[in-house]
């Protein structure tokens, strides 16, 4: 019997959260520079386990907020969605899927995402725009 070796994907496509430029990176990439806007972008997943007060929480990966995690931010931007079991305060923008657990809560101005999964018991206060996809900003001509 011939055993087939399954090759794990080594590259992935991401979109810059500043300009919407698409680029291919290695799955192990933690951060890179966007060739579209020349800004540093975070690629790795972010896990929040405690209280995190920040201005902007941005990543091209996923944001995961655990049961005891609490995010107080102006803006949360991510490429691969949010998984929340704790509480989030702030505007959310993601092309991906948002999953709110049974004890999750979100309060903010706007929640823009591709799709959402709300468990029974989750609390939501704010405006929602679903489905939503990040518009690609045009390059500035020099």
């Amino acid at each position: 019997m011939v055993r087939m070796k399954t090759k794990a994907a080594t590259r992935k496509m991401i979109r810059c959260y500043f300009c919407g430029h698409e680029l291919e990176v290695s799955v192990k990439t933690m951060s890179t520079t966007c060739p579209g806007c020349n800004k540093a972008i975070k690629v790795e997943d972010v896990v929040v386990k405690t209280y995190l007060p920040v201005n902007d929480l941005q990543t091209c990966g996923k944001i995961k907020i655990t049961k005891r995690g609490r995010v107080a931010a102006r803006l949360l931007q991510c490429g691969e969605g949010i998984e929340c079991e704790g509480s989030v305060e702030g505007e959310i923008e993601t092309d991906g899927h948002v999953k709110l657990g049974p004890k999750a809560s979100w309060k903010g101005k706007t929640l823009r995402c591709g799709s959402i999964d709300i468990a029974v018991g989750a609390q939501i206060i704010g405006e929602m725009k679903i489905p939503w996809k990040r518009p690609k900003t045009k390059k500035k001509s020099k």
């Binding site: 809560s105 799709s115 999964d117 709300i118 989750a122 609390q123 206060i125 929602m128 725009k129 489905p131």
Partner: peptide, 19 residues
């Protein structure tokens, strides 16, 4: 009090769920 949303559904407006 609670809301369920299938893939492909759309919402545009202010929401107050589970409060």
């Amino acid at each position: 009090a609670r809301m369920s949303m299938a893939e492909g559904a759309a919402i545009d407006g202010h929401c107050r769920i589970g409060v």
